[in-house]
Amino acid sequence: MYGSASTHDLPTTAVTGLENEDPILLAEFEARIARGEKIEPGDWMPALYRKQLTRMIEQHAHSEIIGSLPEGTWITRAPGFRRKMAQMAKVQDEVGHAQLLYSAAETLGKTREQMLTDLINGKSKYSNVFNYPTPTWADSNVISWLIDAGAIVNQLANAKGSYGPYCRALDRICAEEAFHLKYGHDAVVHMATGTPIQREMMQAALNRWWPAIMTFFGPSDKMSVHTEILMRWKVKMASNDECRNQFLDMYVPKIWEIGLTLPDANLRKNEETGQWEFTEPDWEDFKRVINGDGPCNAERIAVRRAAEENGAWVRRALLTPKTQYVRPLA
């Protein structure tokens, strides 16, 4: 889930350093992308392309691994054996996605040790929605369905990007997401069409999550920094607002059809423009949370760090004198 091309902190000087690139190599690189060919790890690429992609794929990987925590919270208390098995399978998939994505990022030169070091020291970003808690089973269901749905919108767009290893990882991830989406939808529908208490619990969870969901695709395009070059290089494949609008178009009707409401009186589709209208999310609050001051930031990092530290002796014991790290090939 959660590839957000809106990496939330694109450089304000998006073209910095380009003047130092070899103009002939740069022209060949851009021509290859314009022809629709993918870039592979052995190719020459501008430093900015490498940097942006590394950051984006790394953040996506972190989002998978941190994103597995709020749903993982409910594995032990999932209602019924079948749901427990399914919840576990989904969480395992998400951790597998992180593995695929870390490897794709590594082909660009940053080691997995460096990426995990940055994550557990709080230096890296991940999707901000996971800084919120899942106080009930219904909250977990909202993530399974709607956060995954949002992630799929992003991931399908990014799978058409220009970097071969990222595309390969995303193709595999998207294939697995089909189950997540159906599982999540099923879980939400089950609650929403169940007893009055179940229904109430689901509505309350949706109310809690909606503001975060509205920020999932990142700040509005009108506030975003210059990303033209990242679009041209097919690093960023769709604007934040395009993704958000597509998501609303696909899922708001599905939410409404099961009798749930959304906590935004201004939410409606403008049939003339085809665009959804809504109350502008609180971007100041978004900034505050993503910079560390959310309800779960400390817990997420601490839990991840504890897992890394508690497992370190096992990993050390498994090493052999022949273990050799080489940057993955593709």
Binding site: T111, R112, E113, Q114, N121, R315, L319, Q324
Partner: peptide, 29 residues
């Protein structure tokens, strides 16, 4: 945490001092 398993870890509130992973912590490829 809402997760009882996390509570059993007894994680401290204060951010831990920075650490850096050693080479080969994540094995070979």
């Amino acid at each position: 945490s809402h997760d009882p398993r996390m509570n059993r870890l007894g994680l401290p509130d204060a951010p831990a001092p920075a650490v850096a992973k050693e080479a080969l912590d994540q094995f070979g490829t």
